[in-house]
Design a protein around this nucleic acid. Sequence first.
RNA 1: GCGCCCGUAGCUCAGCUGGAUAGAGCACGAGCCUUCUAAGCUUGGGGUCGCAGGUUCGAGUCCUGCCGGGCGCGCCA
Length: 584
Amino acid sequence: MNLFEHFRRDVIAIVGDLAASGVLPAGLDTARVAVEPPRESSHGDIAVNAAMVLAKAAGMKPRDLATAIASRLEALPTVRQAEVAGPGFINLRIANAFWHERLAEILRTGPAYGDSTMGGSRPVNVEFVSANPTGPMHVGHGRGAVVGDALAALLAKAGFQVTREYYINDAGGQIDVLARSAHLRYREALGEKIGDIPEGLYPGDYLVAVGKTIAGRDLDRWLDAPETEWLPHFRNETTAAMLALIREDLAALGVSFDVYTSEKALIAAGKVDEALAELDSRGLIYRAILEPPKGKTPEDWEPRPQTLFRATQFGDDVDRPLRKSDGSWTYFASDIAYHLDKFRRGSATMIDVWGADHGGYVTRMQAAVKAITDGKATLDVKLCQMIHLMDGGEPVKMSKRSGSFVTLREVIDEVGRDAVRFIMLTRRNDAHLDFDLKKVLEQSRDNPVFYVQYAHARIRSVLRHAADTFPTIDVSPQALANTPMDRLTDEAEIDLIKTLAGWPRMVEQAAEAHEPHRVAYYLNDVAAHFHALWNKGRDDTSLRFLLTEDLGLTAARLALISGVAIIIESGLGVFGVTPAEEMR
RNA sequence: GCGCCCGUAGCUCAGCUGGAUAGAGCACGAGCCUUCUAAGCUUGGGGUCGCAGGUUCGAGUCCUGCCGGGCGCGCCA
């Protein structure tokens, strides 16, 4: 339970008492009572809106009701002061002893601090990356990978049962293109001069190795064979090779999945037919000719009858096609089956992480999920905006056409996995992200990766130093948890503990909003509080962490900074980033 | 033309799901190293939250309409 929930229960109990003693009417609805941190920290530690929310039903003026509740809150041992302010807020100042106990709790719990039962072990399926197996991952895919992985970790920490899933789009026309591109490389491997890669085929040289491998094993078996004979073979070989490539990229990023689902296998198992029959039986499929898009009619527009899903019944603007004219399923059709499959495997909560260029696809997919699961499942789609790759302020050119686009792997090799992961999470997913290769490696306040890591490294450095200088102090968190904390009385110290104690609520709120980037801002805040405290010891030597003449206070301060290290470790854990022991 | 996303300090962005006097970094001004790492800290100025209405005790946050930018728009995935 986070600490705000703790005090909310106190408030609700007091409202109940007041009702029992006749001051308030019985049966007041307390659902809207909020106990939160005030925006302005000078207002105290905790703000309670109960009086404003209940005043009307209680037939009292908000401020009068607030006064009644506040006087009872102030009687609690954990509350130092309860003050009525503004239109009827109750601002609480919490006793230091309460904060000291939170610090001890952090030390006892370790990086598991912040783990929540909010999710109640409910299953959540997070599908992310799902890059087509047609080449190595580029930086845009990397953002989806990091956002999805961190969101999954965050949800797990918040108590959900999370499945990380990758959907392999190995069934569409792009796979034929891939296979033909590989066949060309195969011919090249057998000595043929192939010249420029023709328009419409994948030019990337990552296919050279595939061609060589097949040539080495099958020799000239596919050289003069008709395409119908070699195409299936090349499809299988090449998608397998590309998937291996992608898995290597993911491994370099430290991302792994619980489930890989193949679109091709899904179709082969008849699941698409099954799902669409399901929709058909509900009268949600029909044949008709769609109107051309208003205003901008495509060049080659010609009216033709199509098999359509009644997406408009579920909030979409137009009904959406399910079959291509050759009779095969559209991507949308198999995606419907895929989401039904995820639902049937037990996840009524689904989250998809997509690139922003798929934005136009969200509504129809949500409509389909609603239709196929009878509204029993929800689909949230996180759209990841584009990344502007920069190098010292200059944009790095990315041209997919030439096949020389910047791969995720190149960026990881350049700046390291941890930096890539952290920077990808310093923006909301739906905002454009400037990723500057130089700035990420810069050691300055301006670089959030460095700033947070530096705080952790400083703490580790102090703890190492303490172990040398004060052999009588056991610097393990378990031992420090038993240190009397009441020596921590400076405002900056208490402020720091308050920030640390906010971690459980941060986890719950970020998880509920599906917004892992909030953790990055929180960690930056924790680091800022810590660096500020560190520097206070410069002006006032009595505020330093290590004091030869006062072992008790030294131990308490070591407890404090160990708590900071634990929270940073816990937060970076959500991001899959390793905390730094020292800066180099 | 339609749909979705975005618009907050000179720049890059937060803003805890409707709370109180709108925040941080960079940049600019002024300070702090015989010290556990100055790779840091303290402090000052800087705002019509794109514009105009609306909802209510209260709106950067919700609704409507404009303006500006991005993405997408029938057998690509």
